[in-house]
Design a protein around this nucleic acid. Structure first.
Lengths: 221, 221
DNA sequence: CGCTACCTAAATCAAACGATCAGCTTTCTC
DNA sequence: GAGAAAGCTGATCGTTTGATTTAGGTAGCG
């Protein structure tokens, strides 16, 4: 027998073209999953939006569940990367200014990637394996970092004295909702929630409520 | 005169037992629709939760779409009724106090009926006939009343100077999100979002951010 | 060249879907 | 108390779902 065979596991070389279509599938999956929910998102619709045939999804991903997890991983990793990069760039800046800018960064990301909170609200309103995985892997770390930041801000009086858990849901509710409900917002208010000025105005509004006027002095006696 | 036959169209008497099961179906439909979305909510699951057989849904409602609309009608009518009743009870009370209590009422309702915002986020992130119907029939009136109230509050300085459209999405995001994501909140924070103290604490938090400290003096020079 | 990764095309599977029907039981009415 | 309608059920229709299979075609690499 070929002694050379057993020593070589599958070298598993992926060609560049594979990554491209994998990426297209993941992007399409994100859109469809976030818009129609896990059950409502059919693999045929995802394949159609990605411009590939349906069996190809099972070629690249073993199941619909695995595709969902892969797509969610991409999105949340992008969010975490962007936030940590921003935080890294703010080393040395005072805590309150830094927090303000991180909140703005978070709102900007949510506005340009409304799929994040669409998926969270899709999966986290019911207990289930999808929520377990999502919370454990992605949401919990984000929550802990955010809550500790908010607690520190509240302690030093930079934001109103509100328990961090409530502040967390106020922030993650007030920030992204306008963009999650983009089509409704357009219809209801006439504003275009994908426009930069609207995103900035919303970040201004949330920061004004949380931190007070921008000049830094808050509740000045 | 007793021509009895031709003069009597279908008398269409509904028996009391029918209303009971209709109500059970509507309640179950609300839960399942809000949790799994329109596509993900199968008529069999709804029937099972209501404790009836599946063909009975088509006996009481001509189609899945009609069942959805009927269930949503019940919920949003209840919300509007509760808010207008509260507002009616506040005639004569000064505008700011009245607004504060209406915001608390809204948050209380959202906490005890998280299906409202679950359904809104389900249907309003994509253009479609369901969103058209929902916005036109239920959300638009609520938005206009809320926005005009917020505009008036901002004008008189009772809340920070933020355009009403942004304030609306801040309020409808910050208020209900904690309860929409109830299972996640339980897991993440250890808080029980269905407990009265938690609901009150969240209403306190949102009102503190919006209106400032309860004593009425805000940004006092 | 030959091998393997990548991808299309078309057909198919069991399961679950919304919807419908004939028929049974209950309840009101005359 | 008999007849009719309302209320409800089991069986079943055609469709769509996720997934798999078969067959074939193209491109990169040793």
């Amino acid at each position: 027998m070929e002694s050379t065979s057993a020593t070589k596991p599958p070298p598993r070389v992926t060609r560049p073209s594979a990554d491209a279509t994998r990426g297209a599938i993941l992007a399409a999956a994100l859109d469809v999953f976030s818009e129609r929910g896990f059950d409502g998102a059919s693999t045929r619709k995802i394949a159609a939006r990605a411009g590939v045939t349906q069996p190809l999804l099972n070629y690249h991903f073993s199941s619909k569940d695995e595709l969902w997890r892969a797509a969610v991983d991409v999105l949340f990793t992008r969010l975490a990367d962007q936030l940590t990069a921003r935080a890294a760039g703010l080393r040395g800046v005072d805590e309150v200014t830094s927090a303000r800018l991180l909140v703005r960064e978070f709102i900007g990301f949510s506005a340009r990637n409304p799929q994040v909170h669409r998926i969270i609200t899709q999966e986290c309103k019911t207990d289930g394996p999808q929520m377990d995985w999502l919370v454990e892997r992605h949401i919990q770390p984000l929550y802990e970092a955010t809550a500790s930041m908010l607690a520190s801000l509240a302690e030093r009086g930079a934001v109103p004295a509100i328990p961090p858990a409530h502040l967390y849901y106020i922030l993650t509710g007030a920030g992204p909702t306008m963009f999650v409900l983009g089509p409704e917002c357009r219809r209801l208010t006439g504003l275009d929630p994908s426009a930069d000025e609207v995103i900035e105005a919303h970040a201004d509004a949330v920061c004004l409520l949380l931190f007070g006027p921008d000049d830094g002095a808050r509740h000045a006696p």
